[in-house]
């Protein structure tokens, strides 16, 4: 017995979401089916609105619904400090600590040579003109994984010849871990104990 075509299509779309297996995709699809028309429409509209209004900040490549993101618009932040993160969710983790008052640069990923994720696929080129504009220290806040470390070492090898101080947050985070899951105290001390790369 097969699902009716539209239902099968919804299940297969949901299955493509991260962390969603065939069983949860089925459960979600049936849940949506039982929902009032209005609820389903709100979900569909939220998805479309994100796709239509969210873009990358012209300055730091953070996700934003304006030309510049909230951090880049804030004139009170310290423009001599630039913290490089892989994803917007890492930026949010850093912001939650309330300790960091500098600027950010979101790479939108990490280098992974074995998976053909090369520097040109990330927002690396965009970093250099920013650094040339008066940044004194670049803080690398990348996951303590092989990809995070490859990216950190790559950026350090490109930035240090330009005379920029490059530091890396002291990962009290376990190797292979994820910044996003670090508790705030760990992240704060990781930031305080950053060291030169």
């Amino acid at each position: 017995m097969h699902y009716a075509r539209p239902l099968a299509q919804l299940v297969s779309e949901l299955e493509r979401l991260p962390g969603v297996g065939p069983k949860s995709a089925q459960r979600m699809a049936f849940h949506l089916l039982r929902q009032p028309q209005e609820d389903a429409r709100r979900l569909a509209e939220a998805i479309m609105s994100v796709k239509e209004s969210i873009r990358l900040c012209a300055e730091c490549s953070n996700f934003t619904d304006q030309e510049l993101c909230e951090v880049c618009r804030d004139t009170r932040r310290d423009r001599a400090l630039l913290c490089v993160v892989a994803e917007t969710r890492d930026l949010i983790a850093m912001e939650k600590t309330g300790e960091y008052k500098g600027m950010y640069h979101v790479l939108q990923g990490l280098l992974s040579p074995m998976e053909n994720i090369t520097p040109d696929l990330l927002k690396i080129r965009e970093l250099f003109p920013r650094v040339a504009g008066g940044v004194q220290e670049v803080i690398l806040a990348l996951n303590p994984t092989a990809e995070g470390q490859t990216t950190a070492l790559y950026l350090a090898s490109r930035l240090k010849p330009l005379g920029i101080r490059v530091t890396q947050i002291a990962h009290g985070l376990p190797a292979g871990g994820d910044m996003e899951y670090a508790d705030q105290a760990t992240l704060i001390s990781a930031l305080q104990w950053r060291r030169e790369v």
């Binding site: 074995m114 092989a146 376990p174 190797a175 292979g176 871990g177 994820d178 899951y181 670090a182």
Partner: peptide
């Protein structure tokens, strides 16, 4: 990939 997994460090290339 979970936070604090005993396996995370041991699964690094």
């Amino acid at each position: 990939s979970k936070a604090g997994s005993r396996l995370s460090g041991a699964t690094e290339p």
